[in-house]
Every structure is written in C-alpha cells, then in structure tokens.
C-alpha cells in the first residue's frame, strides 16, 4: 500500500486510522484499513457499493464500533474505553445520504439544538452562529420552515450548516448527493466546493467522479474491504495502477 502523502499538502495529520477491521456477522467489510487524513485535505473515497466505504466513514466517528484497530483523532484514540465520545463527536461533523434533519424541529432549531445542548452556547449566540452558517449555504430565508417542506437539495444544505455550526475540525460526507434529484446535485456540490476552498478538512464518500477529480486533494479507491489504491486525483483517474481500479473507472466513467 502506498502511504506516501503528496508533499504539497503535507500538514499536521488530524485523523490516523491503523489496522481497522469491522465485520457484520460473518461478512468482514473492513480489512486492515490504514489511513491518514491531514489538515485541510479533501479526501474522496470511491468504489462500488458494498466495498465498505460508508462503513469506514461511519467508523471514523464511531457510529459503527470497529472490531479491531485504532483510530486517532488529534492524537486521541477513539477506541479506548474511557474516551469522552460525545465531546469528540462535536469536532467531527457528519453529513448523511438521507439528510436526517430532525423532523420535529424547524430549520433554525435543527441548527441550534446541538449548539445549546452539547456546546452549552447561549440561545442568542447559537442563533447568531446558526444564521451565519445558514447564510453560508444560502438557506437563511427558510429559518422557520419545517424540514418536510424543503427539497432534497435544501435539506442537505441545512444538514451541512448544522454540521458547520459545531465548528468541527473535520466533516465526513456519506454520499451527500446520492439521494438527490440530478438538478439539485449541483447546489450541494457547490457548497462543498466552497467549504474545500476555505480549507475545511473533508472526507467524502461519493459517486460524483467529477467532484472527486476537481475538488479532491487525494482519492482512495476501495474494493472488498481493502484500500486498493490511493493517490492524487489526476493519478487515479488518468493512470490507475491496479487492475480493479481500472475496471471500476471504466465502468463509471463510460
């Protein structure tokens, strides 16, 4: 496995994954995953369905408990028992494929809830931060709307604002555009691209090859629970080394 990180974005590692493994029943979905995410990096994980990319992402904030291996976030191991998980999770944002906005709260309260309950911000402060972040994603005109009345793209942008409001060090995107109508994919990708430009560290599981090509600083190709190939987008997309990568890219790009 190539563990060399391209030198031009070589910075402090923010997330280190060592020998991670995970199985559901008899099926082992992650096998010996080693991964380093540096600050300011946009890491795209590609691969066919069932290759373990979503599971890997969900292990990174312990939504799935890994069976073995170690995850270090800012030098703190997440897998030891006495870690303050809820505190750490506020620093690891997550955006889901199915948005998962809280259905019982309106847009503003969706973005405010975790700020007031977990970070103990005052209501005014939380509201200010919420509105600022909603403005960033272009949803500040919809403060009082309930999630059910929004389109998919709007929901996903609110979900991104909700993650941003916690001032995370890193945001995990789990196929953020897969549940969207084609015409709404653009608005969400635009927001993500803006975030990348601002230097937010992002790990993105995606099927949007164009996004991976243009925005990612590094691309990982996963297959059958292994990281098969890893490198800069131009390397992966124009000159893949592994046979399985070639086959996958041929299928999705044609």
């Amino acid at each position: 496995m190539r563990s060399q990180v391209p030198t031009d974005i070589m910075k402090q590692p923010i997330l280190i994954v060592e020998h991670l493994s995970k199985s559901f029943g008899n099926a082992q979905v992650l096998k010996e995953i080693n991964l380093t995410v540096n600050e300011g990096e946009v890491l795209c994980i590609i691969g066919s369905s069932g290759s373990g990319k979503s599971t890997l992402l969900r292990c990174l904030n312990l939504l799935e408990i890994p069976d073995g291996g170690n995850i270090l976030f800012n030098g703190v191991s997440l897998t030891i028992e006495k870690v303050k998980l809820n505190e750490l999770r506020t620093k690891i944002g997550m955006v889901f494929q199915s948005f998962n906005l809280f259905n019982n709260l309106n847009v503003l309260d969706n973005v405010m809830l975790a700020q007031t309950t977990v970070l103990k911000r005052t209501k005014e402060e939380a509201k200010q931060i919420a509105i600022a972040n909603l403005k960033k994603v272009g949803m500040d005109d919809f403060l009082q709307r309930s999630p059910q009345t929004l389109s998919g793209g709007q929901k996903q942008r609110v979900a991104i604002a909700r993650a941003l409001a916690m001032n995370p060090k890193i945001i995990l995107f789990d196929e953020p555009t897969s549940a969207l109508d084609p015409e709404m994919v653009g608005e969400v990708l635009q927001v993500m691209q803006d975030l990348a430009k601002e230097g937010m560290t992002m790990v993105v599981v995606t099927h949007e090859m164009a996004f991976a090509k243009d925005v990612a600083t590094r691309v990982i190709f996963m297959d059958d629970g292994y990281i098969v190939e890893e490198g800069r987008p131009e390397e992966i997309f124009s000159a893949p080394k592994e046979a399985r990568t070639k086959e996958f890219l041929k299928r999705v790009l044609s």
């Binding site: 019982n104 309950t117 977990v118 916690m166």
Partner: peptide, 29 residues
Amino acid sequence: DKGQMEAARSLGLSYRQAMLKIIFPQAIK
C-alpha cells in the same frame, strides 16, 4: 428512522438527550 438517532449522536448529543429531544417528541406525535 434510525438516521434521526445517528444524526443526533453524530452532533455529540448523548443517547439520553437524543431520546428526549428528538425521538420521543416524534414518537409521541
């Protein structure tokens, strides 16, 4: 939907907080 709990936990809410603020209000309704 399981995603409601996952979203709450991913934001740092404890299981209890997620139940009280997100799951229970929706379930009762």
